[in-house]
Amino acid sequence: MIQVNNLTKKYNDTAVLNIESLEIPKGQSLGLVGNNGAGKTTFFSLLLDLIQPSTGNILNNGIQVNTSEDWKPFTASFLDESFLIGYLTPEEYFYFIGDLRGQNKADVDVLLAQHEEFFNGEILKNKKYLRDLSKGNQKKVGIIATLIGNPEVIILDEPFANLDPTTVNRLKKIIKELADNPNVTVLVSSHDLQHTVEVCDRIVALNKGELVKDMLTSKETLQELELFFAV
């Protein structure tokens, strides 16, 4: 589904990302782990054509992302709060995204009803604009919004950060369900090794922009990763 070829990103001759080759087949769920500055967000930004690669390219379902916009209809993402529109209520935001993805109000309502537990009663009908929600609740809105319109590629940057323990478990359930769907490719980045290993079929570790580990999840994966990141 996603193919990375000789991708590098440099700022003033300092390489922040350098991935020679990476292929993510359709239906796989990939966890991207690494320390701060490892290049996780840079990689996602490149994948979403928010920054330009210095060399190389990324193909999303055969479409080169920095030359065509045709990957947008089947790709959904939530990187940070700059993906939220602060002056809308959560409902309005969901319907807005729904409109853009060709879903009517009823479709969106069905999806929201499925995730009522995840929202924990703090999101819908709360008379608050998104800008006034707490960081965690904002994240809940952003994550669920990516599910609108049955996208085939879902990209989540640090979805577990800022969430309470109960919500983290509920989110894991949601991501696992997505991962089980053979039509959906999920990309998740995280600092938390355990969460990532639990929900992903495959783990890729980045360090200072280089791909240092790439493995399918097994019983030993977590141990191996912990050893790698040990001080």
Binding site: L48, D49, T75, S82, R101
Partner: peptide, 10 residues
């Protein structure tokens, strides 16, 4: 403030 969203949406 939400330009990145606009640029990744359909």
């Amino acid at each position: 403030s939400y330009y990145q969203l606009m640029m990744t949406q359909n």
